[in-house]
Design a protein around this nucleic acid. Structure first.
Length: 137
DNA sequence: ATTCTTACA
DNA sequence: TGTAAGTA
């Protein structure tokens, strides 16, 4: 179950997630208020998002674009499970080890995610189509 | 320089 | 949702 841990690792600050999803900070925080995502927090109260968080945000974005409101999204999306939340609790030790992700490191991980496809077989990952714009040739 | 919360447009 | 204010 190592892949799940990887997808639940808290890695990105909101600024990067904004670029990854093309969502505003206001929107991202708003969706968190409604429990659509539960990003981890650093000891300094800063949000740290995981690949799963980013994927969920992309799904939310797709639904919003379809005209679905928050209430509708809550019905369609499965709620954030306990394991995810536990896995994203940031200890001081974790925070120290995380360091700052360089762009090259980030893109490397994103490419890995594209190869993996994210999620499980059966449900097509939205991350691939959405994030492909970061690898325009 | 970034992010956070609160509150008003 | 956008944005401004005052912090951390």
């Amino acid at each position: 179950m190592g892949d799940e841990i990887r997808r639940n690792m808290a890695l990105f600050p909101i600024g990067i997630v904004m670029k990854l999803t093309d969502l505003s900070a206001r929107q991202i925080r708003y969706y968190e208020q409604h429990q659509l995502i539960v990003p981890a927090r650093t000891s300094g109260n800063q949000r740290l998002f995981s690949f799963n968080d980013v994927e969920r945000l992309l799904e939310i974005k797709a639904l919003i674009d379809k005209g679905v409101n928050i209430a509708g999204i809550k019905q369609v999306m499965n709620p954030v499970n306990k394991e995810s939340q536990e896995a994203t609790v940031i200890t001081n030790d974790t925070e120290e080890k995380r360091k700052v992700l360089t762009d090259s490191q980030l893109y490397r991980m994103l490419k890995q995610e594209l190869v993996t496809g994210g999620k499980r077989p059966g449900q097509v990952s939205l991350i691939q189509g959405e994030l492909s714009r970061f690898f325009k040739q």
